[in-house]
């Protein structure tokens, strides 16, 4: 939380360094960041509520997403996980009727404050969507470098950046011979990893993933999970998933969202993933993670 290092200038190691082994239990349940976070930014959401028109969909969400860690948001459909995720990089406000309350801090800076422009926020906090959405009018290489072009960034070492991003997303070996081909020719899993590579090129501090594997087959899913695992320690990852096993495999921390009937979604319980899955305090969490409802 006190890590006020300007995120944009922080250089990332060129290659994928070995992810440091940080068991989720290194952090206390109150969400204080552990010592020496290796990379990424810390996101702190405080009392976040959200509305679509007059319909309240999220209420009083407090959550800390620690630097370099993977935080999984779980819960049944319609409980506000995706809305919460979209609040974290200001995509929520794209819906004309959307409004919100509360604050979200990135390394102590309010992303809804006056000092940050919305484009800066989204550059620092990237997003991968449920459906792979590579730009069909661009080649594979252009897709990866799209973030540079779209944000008006000049890069002298463009091809190195493309390779680095593709390597970090675990796609380099599969596409290195056809970087100029249309991105639409890749398989679904490859497209999704291309989207991850595309998000990584602008060197975000945080990567938000909205059910990134829900449209993919098990092999592609495993590949993406490996990618997430390799990115741990470099980027803070917040992932929405409906897959309990996936949440267990990839995340260090976990937040369980739940919305009672005709009520906005709330966080029932959050904490280290092992705690949420093995010894949850709330009976509803226990029921959900053991597949008894939802």
């Amino acid at each position: 939380m006190n890590n006020t290092d300007p995120a944009s200038t922080r250089p990332l190691p060129p290659g994928p360094p070995l992810p440091p082994e940080q068991p989720g239990t290194a952090h206390t349940a109150t969400g204080q960041p552990g010592p020496a976070a290796p990379g990424g930014g810390t996101l702190t959401a405080t009392q976040v509520s959200a509305w679509f028109g007059s319909n309240k969909v999220l209420e009083g969400v407090d959550l800390d997403m620690d630097a370099g860690q993977v935080t999984a948001l779980i819960g049944p459909s319609g409980c506000g996980k995706s809305t919460f995720l979209r609040i974290l990089n200001r995509m929520h406000e794209l819906v004309p009727t959307a409004s919100l309350a509360g604050s979200v801090l990135l390394d102590g800076e309010d992303i809804y404050g006056r000092t940050l422009r919305v484009t800066q926020v989204r550059r620092h906090i990237g997003m991968v969507f449920q459906k792979p959405n590579p730009f069909p009018a661009m080649s594979i290489a252009d897709n990866v470098a799209a973030g540079l072009k779209l944000t008006g960034t000049k890069a002298a070492n463009r091809s190195e950046l493309i390779e680095e991003s593709l390597r970090r997303a675990g796609l380099w070996n599969e596409v290195k011979g056809r970087l100029r081909d249309a991105a639409g020719g890749l398989s679904g899993g490859q497209q999704q990893r291309l989207c991850i590579a595309r998000s990584l090129t602008v060197r975000p501090d945080v990567l938000l993933m909205d059910e990134p594997c829900s449209a993919l087959d098990p092999t592609s899913t495993r590949r993406i999970e490996e990618t997430i695992d390799e990115l741990r320690g470099q980027v803070t990852i917040v992932i929405v998933t409906h897959n309990m096993q996936q949440a267990q495999r990839v995340s260090q921390r976990c937040a369980f969202f739940l919305a009672a009937e005709n009520e906005p979604g709330r966080i029932v319980e959050s904490g280290p993933t092992t705690t949420i899955f093995e010894s949850p305090k709330d009976s509803r969490t226990s029921d959900y993670v053991h597949g008894r409802f939802g």
């Binding site: 989204r122 997003m127 959405n133 069909p136 973030g147 779209l150 944000t151 595309r198 998000s199």
Partner: peptide, 29 residues
């Protein structure tokens, strides 16, 4: 033009006009 492409562009930190110019228009070429 799928809304997902606009969102993807905006999520990369692109301004609105850039999104239209570099993503929406080429897709609809």
């Amino acid at each position: 033009v799928p809304g997902g492409l606009r969102e993807a562009s905006l999520a990369l930190g692109a301004p609105h006009w850039r999104t239209v110019l570099s993503v929406v228009l080429p897709t609809a070429r």
